[in-house]
Nucleic acid binder design. Structure first.
Lengths: 268, 268
DNA sequence: GGTTTATGTCCATTGAATGGACGATAGCCC
DNA sequence: GGGCTATCGTCCATTCAATGGACATAAACC
């Protein structure tokens, strides 16, 4: 007699569970791994995975392992097309990159993490900390702190409740200090982070606002720790952030929206 | 009494129909548009779309329209990570770009089209014909002809059966001539296309082979029509294609696989 | 050769998906 | 205002497709 596991779950949610089992570092999964990760019976996982393969959402290698399919990647690129933010920000990021010769990053809020939407690198053979599509913690990255500071108290509490893992010995793990920093960031619109996410990397981040004064993204410059006087970076980042915001329709006279979680990214 | 429309379709396939209704040029859809595009009852489409939104695969704007979500884009980026091809090819593409100062493109086969995986542009303000994630026709683009020529007769017949739409007045629409060109391409490994896909753009493309001698991608250089002597481009493209292939484990002694459709991309 | 693990297939059971019907709202034209 | 149409949202009785335990196979391991 089948039909045992918890009911109330829709087929769609199960299918999406299989799909989203793929993540950074786990981009190639066997059937057994998928079964473990989703917690679903292996017969179910197999059927769903095969349907995803048939549709081109997943691909199956000759060794039986599954990967995300090119077709799904294609579909994903549409997300950026319908994100005017990136198109608008790119030229300004380019200018900032030309002026400073440092990493320039653009990130948006997604659940309880920051997602790197675009990145311009300085040298050719620089350390690749994170690639577009990569995720950064909200509590200890430049872009993360900016996004968290303006995301509303609900998300802040959620992140604090999840705990503040120390990525380096310099990560701020004290909730009280983090709150202070977020308050300050909300005042100034800027977050300066010193080797909190990665040893040897400092970052200066600022908010990007849309025409409604909502924080839709964070723009940051990442430099080698101590290699550059951050006082020279800060004004440039602020000015570029304002330029992008202006181009998105924001005007200095407009109120900057605090409170409510911004955008559809704050679903999770 | 519900339950009317054609049975035999799985929920998953319907869900994926909704998902893949989003495509280039139709990246922002209303519920009514989704309903029309999928041909499903609107109650069904709505339920599926809302579940996709809940999972973060889609996002819903305040005006009610749906777009592909950042989360799905993130998932898509994993496809490139598990595609060693791109990582391997990039430095060689970079070299080719440095040497020629022209557009350099890398594409793979996906169904009956070529998908642009990576693109390096020459000038800054060049015409943006196609972006990564974009699709190119198999019968009249450089990368397309290369991929088609090596994809096996089954796909060739399918493409010919679909008809050969003229993208420009110079598009080869005669099946006989196209077959000749594909034969020649299979001989030489190179396809030269003169303003067939876009007026004013010529391209020289070559195949990229893996360790099994399978054609896994096509590499091309696109130049303004008549702006460059293609005889100077051709050897460079060939050499770079061979370099990438070599790096993928291919050796000149190896047989080049013809026949069978390459890779999992040839599902559709 | 016995045990474990990964993968693949079958099929009786049943609960989740279905979609027609109805309602609400907005835009449009006469 | 009134009629017409399009879009979006919700409800719920019906039923068919999803389910997953059971079994089979193959490979890896000790």
């Amino acid at each position: 007699m089948p039909r045992t596991s918890e009911p109330g779950r829709s087929v769609s949610s199960r299918l999406l569970d299989v799909l989203f089992a793929f993540r950074a570092g786990r981009s190639r999964l066997t059937l057994a791994e998928l079964t473990r990760d989703t917690g679903l019976p292996h017969a179910t996982v197999r059927r769903l995975a095969m349907e995803l393969v048939e549709a081109g959402a997943l691909e199956r290698a000759s060794d039986g392992s599954f990967t995300v399919g090119i077709r799904l990647w294609q579909l994903g690129t549409l997300a950026l097309l319908s994100l005017p933010l990136r198109t608008v920000a790119l030229p300004f990021m380019d200018d900032l990159h030309t002026a400073l010769r440092q990493h320039v990053q653009l990130a948006v809020l997604e659940g309880t993490e920051a997602v790197l939407v675009e990145r311009l690198s300085s040298g050719r053979a620089v350390d690749v900390m994170s690639q577009p599509g990569g995720r950064l913690p909200l509590h200890c990255s430049g872009v993360g702190k900016v996004l968290l500071a303006h995301a509303g108290s609900e998300l802040i509490e959620q992140v604090l409740a999840q705990g503040l893992p120390a990525y380096t010995e310099r990560t701020v793990t004290d909730p009280v200090r983090l709150r202070e920093q977020l308050d300050e960031c909300r005042e100034t619109g800027v977050a300066v982070v010193l080797q909190e996410a990665t040893l040897g990397a400092d970052s200066v981040a600022t908010r990007v606002l849309d025409d409604e004064g909502k924080v839709v993204a964070a723009l940051s410059v990442v430099v080698g720790a101590g290699s550059v006087d951050l006082r020279t970076v800060r004004p440039a980042v602020i000015a570029s952030g304002l330029a992008v915001s202006r181009r998105l329709g924001w005007r200095p006279s407009a109120r900057i929206e605090q409170g409510a979680c911004s955008g559809p990214g704050a679903t999770g």
